[in-house]
Design a protein around this nucleic acid. Structure first.
Length: 241
DNA sequence: GATGAGCGT
């Protein structure tokens, strides 16, 4: 029996202007919301177009998903679905960039005619996601099954290679970088020491100091006064249009 | 800093 200790829903397709308050106002009618928040971007501080709501009862969550999924909010069609498990003790979520979701979308979709399961031959999923050996505990846990099978981040690219062929050249170089980095983790100091004693003098403190002190002088034009006017004469009463 | 199919501090 699968039962979560929390009932969270993912709300996508929100308008840029929708805020946590608007989200709560739209979902609190289905039940008591423990939390309702719209994810904001750190750069602009604006809504990222999706948010999360947490109910205190499964019934309310189910009602909200069934009632608000595909509905219109603030002028945009929103997507309501169960949220991913953020939690627990550590999240090893990967930035896949896509998931196995197969929501009905107009003129969209990436799973149609693009991939079939090599294992069981059924479309809609890839061999590595073949449900034949993995069981979904109901929504909310699709990343877990994947990690359990691979346990390695590099292996993930290898799998793709079988499907795409020589298209992963960029991954190859990237993959190589990871290997070198990990291998160097234990010998990082050794490499540094060798380089220092290899005959090449690193930038010494006196040198840098000398350069800073010896070259530190006027910037060219600072501390006095500028021309007070741009080199270009631009009439402001005749360029407006 | 815009983004539009996305799963948060």
């Amino acid at each position: 029996m699968s039962e979560e200790v929390e009932y969270r829903c993912f709300i996508g397709g929100l308008a840029w202007a929708t805020s946590d308050r608007g989200l709560r106002d739209a979902f609190e009618k289905y039940g008591h919301l423990l939390e309702a928040k719209v994810v904001l971007d750190k750069f602009s501080g604006r809504s990222r177009g999706f948010g999360f709501i947490t109910f205190d009862e499964k019934k309310a969550m189910d009602e909200a998903i069934a009632a608000m999924n595909g509905m219109d909010l603030d002028g945009r069609t929103i997507t309501v679905d169960k949220a991913q498990p953020q939690g627990g003790s550590g999240r090893d979520r990967d930035h896949d960039g896509d998931r196995s979701r197969d929501r009905s979308r107009p003129s969209g979709g990436r799973g149609s005619g693009g991939g079939d399961c090599f294992k069981c031959g059924k479309p809609g999923h890839f061999a590595r996601e073949c449900p034949d050996e993995s069981g979904r505990g109901g929504g909310g846990g699709r990343y877990s099954s994947r990690d359990d099978r691979y346990g390695g981040k590099d292996d993930r690219y290898s799998s793709r290679d079988d499907r795409y062929g020589g298209k992963d050249d960029r991954y190859s170089s990237r993959d190589d970088r990871y290997s070198a980095k990990d291998d160097r983790s234990g010998a990082k100091e050794d490499r540094y020491d060798r380089e220092s004693g290899g005959g090449r003098d690193r930038y010494g403190p006196d040198r840098g100091s000398e350069r800073s002190g010896g070259r530190s002088r006027d910037d060219g034009s600072r501390g006095g006064e500028r021309h007070g006017r741009a080199p270009y004469d631009r009439p402001r009463d005749g360029g407006s249009h």
